[in-house]
Amino acid sequence: MRSFVSERASAIPPSGIRKFFDIAQTMEDVISLGVGEPDFVTPWCVCEAAIYSIEQGSTAYTSNKGTPQLRGAISHYLDARFGTTYDPEEEIIVTCGVSEAADVAIRAVVDPGDEVLVAEPCYVSYIPCVTLAGGTPVPVPCRAEDEFRMAADALAEKITPRTKILIANFPNNPTGGVMGESDWRAIADLLVDHDLLLISDEVYAELTYEGDHFSPARIPEIRDRTITLNGFSKAFAMTGWRIGYLCAPQEITAAALKIHQYVALCAPVMGQVAAYEALRIGNEEKDAMVREYRLRRNLFVDGLNKLGLPCHLPKGAFYAFPSVESTGMSDTEFAEALLREQHVAVVPGSVLGASGAGHVRCAYAVSRDDLKEALSRMGAFIESHK
């Protein structure tokens, strides 16, 4: 019997992050630094608004684009917080998480054979989404010596006549790297010179610890060649609500909306109610979480460096990305042995792109006590392998 699985589906690997998470779930006494999920509960004011809406019978479909109230709130939030302006009626689509926003955005603009540059190391879904859309992913390495920012020279080296799109995620998962205004302006010049589109995933925008997040859509020259992705999972501890959004010029949102309405129809109405409430009154809880992440970052990164695992101080997101080359192990060997021997789960950097080889991703979205215990176990692990 022949295989009915498509070649594109066969070509993409399963998530390397989920692999380690699934193994950790079968073990006892595991400290998981593997999955990028806040350990905080969604603020009660947000939950209460959703519960009340259900009690009032708000359980039906919404507009494919999302409720007008939420799109209006998103438009106001982006303008007030990051200085980017989007028309809530024509330029914003509410999606089922940022993952769907990325998938829809990529499929709306990629034709078979298009080359798509991807800033790497990167979140695991970008390259498979490009492959499924028929495009050719081309990694752009972001280097540790640059604090994992994307350098214009590294980008320029990868551009060919077939290049159409750049996908970038800053603050970055997995490195915590950020891009400032001057970094983006250098990239913007290349986008204009080579007539390229930018897909900018900014889901960690609120988790910026040194200064303010800079959104590239603020640059007038590339505003209309930028698709901005964002959502509520990280900043508001709303991973399970699955609410994200896509912002772009009307021509692109119209194309993306056609895909979204056939794939998902609309995002869950109760999640949209919750997201609206998060933007309306959830800032105090969000800011408290960000302050705690900053404390955890300082504690954990300092501990990693003291253990002899060199790690730059990440300026955003909630990941540390230490090098493990000093142990003599590959990143995969290190992660597998650490989980097996000390019950600490981390993610090998190589599953996040070849540029991540020699590093491991550690999510510090766990309590400070767990971080201290993880450092203790990692220290014992390193000592046992000297």
Rank of each mutant, 00 (worst) to 15 (best):
V94P: 08
C96W: 06
C96V: 14
G97R: 07
G97D: 08
G97T: 13
G97I: 13
V98W: 07
V98C: 11
E100T: 13
A101E: 10
A102W: 06
A102I: 14
A102P: 01
D103S: 15
V104H: 06
A105S: 14
A105E: 07
I106Y: 01
R107L: 00
R107N: 08
R107E: 03
V109C: 09
P112H: 08
G113Q: 12
G113N: 10
G113V: 14
D114V: 14
D114Y: 02
D114E: 11
E115P: 00
E115I: 01
E115S: 03
E115Q: 10
V116N: 05
L117N: 11
L117T: 14
V118Q: 03
V118G: 03
A119T: 11
E120L: 03
P121T: 06
P121F: 04
Y123E: 12
V124F: 02
V124I: 04
I127Y: 11
P128H: 15
P128M: 14
P128Y: 15
P128V: 15
V130M: 05
V130H: 05
T131P: 15
T131M: 15
T131V: 15
L132S: 03
L132H: 09
A133E: 03
G134A: 10
G134E: 07
G135V: 08
G135R: 10
G135W: 00
T136V: 09
V138W: 00
V138M: 08
V138P: 00
P139M: 01
P139D: 00
V140E: 02
V140L: 06
C142V: 05
C142P: 01
R143Y: 05
A144V: 07
A144P: 13
D146V: 05
D146E: 09
F148K: 06
F148Y: 15
R149Y: 00
R149G: 08
R149N: 04
M150F: 03
A151Q: 12
A152F: 05
D153S: 15
D153Y: 14
D153C: 11
A154K: 15
L155W: 09
L155R: 07
L155F: 08
A156G: 02
E157Q: 12
I159E: 06
T160F: 11
T160P: 01
P161Q: 05
R162L: 15
R162E: 15
T163D: 10
K164W: 02
K164E: 08
L166V: 12
A168G: 09
A168D: 11
F170I: 10
P171A: 11
P171V: 06
N172E: 07
N172M: 05
N173P: 01
P174Q: 04
P174F: 01
P174M: 03
P174H: 04
P174I: 01
T175F: 14
V178L: 14
